[in-house]
Design a protein around this nucleic acid. Structure first.
Lengths: 399, 399
DNA sequence: TCAAGGCTTGAATCGGCTC
DNA sequence: GGAGCCGATTCAAGCCTTG
């Protein structure tokens, strides 16, 4: 999320963020409450430290933070401009802070900041790192080599990802977060299992989270209406991270603070934060943003209800679920039209292949057709709408 | 999926799987059709090679396979037995083949088999590897170090994952697959974009797949009713993998064949397979399983024609076919741009002459333009896209 | 004031054949 | 191998304009 990578290792500037009425840090409510709940005096709580991330980490006292959220550069390695089908240019992440000469360089950078972060983590602290396939494998391997203990990998499924414009790959619709404790012996980490379950229709929270990307009013803009930061993360993502793995009053460290999402959500949820950021423009925008946050009541700092929308079911899932078989014949309600199911989830009408909707429309000579309600299969002499199977698949997906 | 790791490097036994009525491998239908569609004589098609995976890989001819699906040991590092809330014992993966002394050992193993696999991949072959957070980060980093080029990471979201019994983590509800080409210059890989889109409600297939785990009749059991293999993958998963990234007649290699899901689905979908497996019990069960598979009709498994491989039609053919007349005016959909048709199949924009694409780009000020979908002619007061005429010309050419 | 439709945009390793 | 050219390619949200 930030750029605190290559700055000078000199003395850090501090940007203090206005306090919020909340006074001293609240005591941790996790089970293994430490003897002293007061943070070390030198801990710069609710401040943004300007300067090199590793140099600043080295100035913090050891074993002093409860949770770390890190959104490091992804090392995207883009080589050419990309245009949408309408010929508009995609605004790529081409900032200097995301450029590395080689994988070896990126690995060295990764191991350096991870080591520095590990030193300031309390024994039962946990670390979150987010990334994409460009960097997450290197980050994960480095974590393991440095004796972090991976607890989960979490998939952030984007509600509205950028499409694959050239049609040469699958839509890159998710990013990956790794959640790790400081070591295999750090068994007392915070995890609000019951709260998450209660907020998730009374079933355990899974490792795949469906959350929209950051847009609209939440997205920080400068005076010219341009986005302040190219990769601002949604607050909903950070909220779930902090609600699941931290307590009110905890210290949350973000070594790549960027636009300050971690700080804004920490303040909202009654956590303390420490932000490290190299770029003064980002830090200034983050401070302004955080100052405007009004913390929630202590009582309401619990898991927010999930919003549910009806999920789109690929017809292919009906084949995969065993409801419909490749090679069998679909018919309409009056058995006037037929089409054959193909293994890839398309239908064949003689030589013509298309979706259940396209073929449904074609066989009737209509411009469009809802294939779900048009097509049926025969089971024990009776016709069953494929829409019934879709309902069942949806139920399975929700379970 | 299998165990072909530590076996002796001696001569491989071959377990031949009965052929299926399907005779010689069908020619690839991808664009870069090789001069010879016959596989090298020494390629052991539709066989399971017993023995050490790397030793067997080294015996295969170079650049001979089209797709690789690999389900290597996960290196789970389980330290104690796990019980459910009702105190029943969870049947964990505790086989010898999943035990490694250290991450360094696992890395060495990973790099060895990946290198051996890369040698037998054709230039435009792609590789799929599946894993969990225990091993996938190491695999991904090794892939990148060996110059594979990652195309996507795919999340297999399990419909029915095992819950987290102790309530100390998120339900581990997914596994990760990495899809990679042999190198950054391997641009001609197979990807059935249109078929996947048509089978997915006419929107692009995303990187997160929702598929049930392997249960019920699909799960191989021995005579005592115990599962044959601890990590048998669902056929639906392999089906989507092969339908998206291979053609009928292709050679699919699985270096950790295990219970033979890759072979069973390859046969079902008219692909050839090569399976490597160290454990004779697994290989025997796989052979029996594959022998029972009845392949689908060719018509159900072939990929529908991709739009980008359709016959190229010169614009001049529209004039020759009488659909468009020399001297008439083409306009865009909103009648903002105009150009005049010349007798040689070019367009004139004032003094400038060029192709339908060039002139379309020029008049809009874009770097490029698809003239077929941009330009229209007026007929009886209505605009008709010249692309409709192209469709008619194509139909005439096919007739 | 509202509804409908247009425009913009998002961490992206994004074409392929012929000459 | 490089240049030139044909022509294929996007989904969901949110904001804004238009009627």
């Amino acid at each position: 999320m930030g750029t605190s990578r290559t700055g000078a290792a000199g003395a850090a500037s501090r940007i203090s963020v206005s306090r919020t009425g909340r006074s001293a840090p609240a005591p941790r409510t996790g089970r293994k409450t430490p003897l002293s709940v007061v943070q070390p005096k030198s801990l710069p709580l609710n401040e943004i430290l300007l300067g090199d991330c590793i140099a600043n980490l080295e100035k913090l006292p050891p074993e002093s933070v409860d949770v770390v959220f890190a959104d490091p550069p992804y090392n995207l390695q883009l080589e050419q401009a990309l245009t949408r089908p309408d010929q508009s240019l995609v605004d790529a992440v081409d900032d200097d802070w995301d450029k590395f000469a080689s994988f070896a360089d990126y690995d060295a950078f990764t191991r350096a900041w991870l080591s520095a972060v590990r030193r300031v983590m309390k024994k039962n602290a946990t670390l979150w790192v987010i990334g994409s396939y460009h960097n997450i494998f290197r980050v994960g391997a480095a974590l393991q080599d440095l004796d972090f203990w991976i607890l989960n990998d979490i998939v952030w499924r984007k509600a509205n990802p950028m499409p694959n414009f050239k049609g040469r790959r699958f839509t890159n619709a998710h990013e990956t977060m790794i959640w790790a404790s400081r070591g295999a012996d750090s068994k007392g980490y915070t995890f609000h299992y019951d709260a998450l379950k209660a907020g998730n229709e009374d079933v355990q929270m899974r490792s795949d989270w469906f959350i929209p990307i950051c847009t609209g009013d939440e997205r920080l803009k400068d005076e010219n209406g341009r986005k302040v930061h190219p990769t601002q993360k949604p607050e909903a993502l950070l909220a779930r991270v902090l609600l699941s793995s931290s307590n009110p009053g905890d210290v949350v460290l973000d070594p790549f603070f960027g636009s300050g999402t971690t700080g804004a959500v920490a303040k909202l949820l009654g956590r303390n934060f420490i932000g490290l950021e190299r770029d003064p423009t980002y830090a200034k925008a983050a401070r302004k943003r955080i100052d405007a946050v009004v913390p929630l009541d202590d009582a309401s700092v619990s898991a927010p209800p999930e919003k549910r929308t009806e999920v789109r079911v690929p017809f292919l899932s009906l084949i995969e679920g065993g409801y419909v078989k490749a090679g069998e014949t679909l018919v309409d309600e009056r058995r006037r039209h037929k089409a054959v199911v193909r293994a890839d989830g398309t239908l064949a009408l003689g030589p013509i292949v298309g979706s259940i909707h396209k073929i449904g429309a074609l066989t009737q000579g209509f411009p469009s057709c809802n294939g779900w309600t048009f097509w049926n299969v025969e089971r024990d002499g009776k016709l069953i709408s494929i829409d019934e199977f879709r309902t069942k698949v949806r139920a399975e997906m929700a379970a």
